[in-house]
């Protein structure tokens, strides 16, 4: 191959110049998941950019999220209480997921499967709370995708669309986790190895990652 010039000493250049595979030691499924997540990043960013655009262009007042999403606790309205709890739940699920990956690579398949199921339960809790949040918003605050009593119509539109799309990702993730967990449990990957848990984990952490951005841009702005 090419002469060992200065550039070839860089690991980056060397890897890209190799035959067979660019990402050494990265299984096909994992490479594919990373590339898919990159594509999904573009989807979510386009959603968030659209939200930014309609929010910045509207001449109507934008409802104040910290009031709209407040929850009564012990008689006082606490801003964003539910959202804070949902955030902590999702982070916790990311933690259990990371440990499932770890257990998988140690070939402890039962704990790995259990941790994945725990992750799925946290995910389901998240979706459940989201349903509660939507109901409250629709019933109590009168927010609809086409309008609301507080201000700009785009508030409800963006909110339902973005959290809805994220919620779909979480729900799909729960199903995916359960399927893989059951297969892990049954020992289907004993021969092939446990990359699959890491791949599932990538997806799950990504869903958490998206939530970080939604939390900052939708609820805190």
């Amino acid at each position: 191959m090419a002469e060992a010039t200065g550039l070839r000493n860089l690991q980056l250049v060397n890897d890209w110049a190799d035959d067979v595979a660019v990402f050494r030691a990265v299984p096909w499924g994992k490479a594919m998941m990373w590339i898919f997540l990159l594509s999904d990043t573009f989807i979510f960013t386009c959603f968030l950019t659209s939200y930014m655009t309609v929010r910045m262009t509207t001449a109507e007042p934008w409802p104040n999220p910290s009031e709209v999403f407040a929850l009564e606790a012990f008689g006082v309205p606490v801003p964003l209480l539910l959202i804070a709890i949902m955030t902590f739940i999702l982070i916790t699920s990311s933690g259990t997921m990371a440990m499932a990956v770890n257990m998988g690579y140690r070939r402890k398949r039962v704990p790995a499967a259990l941790l994945m199921l725990v992750t799925a339960v946290f995910g389901a809790m998240f979706v459940g709370m989201q349903m509660f949040e939507w109901t409250k918003l629709i019933v109590d605050e009168g927010v609809r995708p086409w309008g609301n009593p507080m201000g700009a119509a785009q508030f409800g539109a963006s909110f339902f669309m973005i959290t809805g799309f994220h919620g779909l990702h979480v729900s799909a993730g729960v199903v995916y986790l359960i399927i893989v967990a059951v297969r892990v449990w049954r020992g289907r990957y004993e021969e092939k190895g446990y990359d699959i848990i890491e791949i599932t984990g990538l997806y799950w952490h990504f869903v958490d990652l998206v939530w970080v951005f939604i939390f900052a841009f939708f609820y805190l702005w």
């Binding site: 067979v20 595979a21 660019v22 990402f23």
Partner: peptide, 8 residues
């Protein structure tokens, strides 16, 4: 990216 043959 990941499945070329030897030398490719």
């Amino acid at each position: 990216l990941q499945a070329r043959t030897r030398g490719m």
